[in-house]
Amino acid sequence: MSNPSNIQAPAAAYAPPPVPGKTLGIISIILPFVGLGLIGLILGIVGKVQAKKAGYKNTPAVVGIVLGAISVVVGLIVTITIIAGITAVAQQCQQLGPGVHQQGSVTITCGS
């Protein structure tokens, strides 16, 4: 007969500690897709710094930084393009005066 005192209990499963800043990194990946690229960029940087201080790699934070930076650059390009277009139309209207004007194949409507 075996002695029950010789039976060892299974070792407890070891859960590694969470990577500091990983949640911020994941959030920073999502934010550029909902129009909040600058906030995503900032959270990615914060998450990366937190992980680096603790000695961990934080891949989601790096991806969030890249996506946030791309989002900010694209947003700036779109904004500059829109402002340039509005400025060009405003200058045309200033020269043409109020009314509807045909410039080649483009119709420009200027207010009063």
Rank of each mutant, 00 (worst) to 15 (best):
G97E: 01
I83K: 12
L41T: 03
A88N: 08
G44Q: 00
G68Y: 00
C110Q: 08
S28M: 15
V106L: 14
Q102D: 09
V72D: 00
I108M: 11
G44C: 02
P60I: 06
V19M: 10
G97Y: 06
I26G: 06
Y56Q: 05
V62M: 04
G64P: 03
Q102I: 10
G104R: 04
V49A: 11
G64I: 02
V46M: 14
M1H: 04
I7P: 01
G55L: 04
Y14D: 14
I26C: 10
Q50C: 06
L43V: 11
V74W: 05
T87I: 07
Y14V: 15
G111H: 10
T107R: 12
T87A: 13
I27H: 10
P16V: 03
K22W: 11
V74I: 11
G55W: 00
A84L: 13
G111L: 01
A69W: 02
G44N: 03
L36N: 12
L41Q: 01
G44F: 00
Y14S: 15
P10E: 05
L41K: 01
I86K: 15
L43F: 15
V63L: 06
T79Q: 10
I83N: 08
L76C: 05
G64H: 02
Y56H: 06
V46R: 09
I86T: 15
Q95V: 06
G99A: 05
Q91D: 15
I83T: 11
S112H: 12
M1N: 01
T79F: 08
P20K: 09
G37H: 11
P4L: 01
V74R: 05
Q50S: 09
I82Y: 11
N58E: 01
P98I: 04
I77N: 05
S2A: 00
A11P: 05
P60F: 03
G40P: 04
K53S: 09
K22C: 08
I65P: 03
A84N: 14
Q102S: 11
L36I: 07
Q8A: 08
V46C: 12
Q103I: 14
N6F: 01
T59Y: 13
F33N: 12
V19C: 00
I29F: 15
V73K: 02
S5R: 01
G35C: 06
T59G: 06
G35W: 06
A84R: 15
T81A: 15
N58F: 02
I42N: 08
V46A: 13
S112R: 12
V74H: 00
I70V: 13
A9H: 08
L43S: 10
L41R: 05
G35E: 03
L31E: 14
L36S: 14
A51V: 05
T109R: 12
C110E: 03
A9C: 05
L96R: 07
G97F: 02
C110I: 05
K22Y: 12
S112G: 09
G40M: 04
I26W: 13
Q95E: 11
I82M: 12
I42K: 12
Y14N: 15
L38F: 14
P18E: 02
L36K: 10
I65C: 08
L31K: 13
K53I: 13
G25L: 14
K52T: 14
P10Q: 07
I86G: 11
L24K: 15
V19W: 03
I86N: 14
G99H: 01
P4G: 00
S28A: 15
K52Y: 00
Y14K: 15
T23K: 03
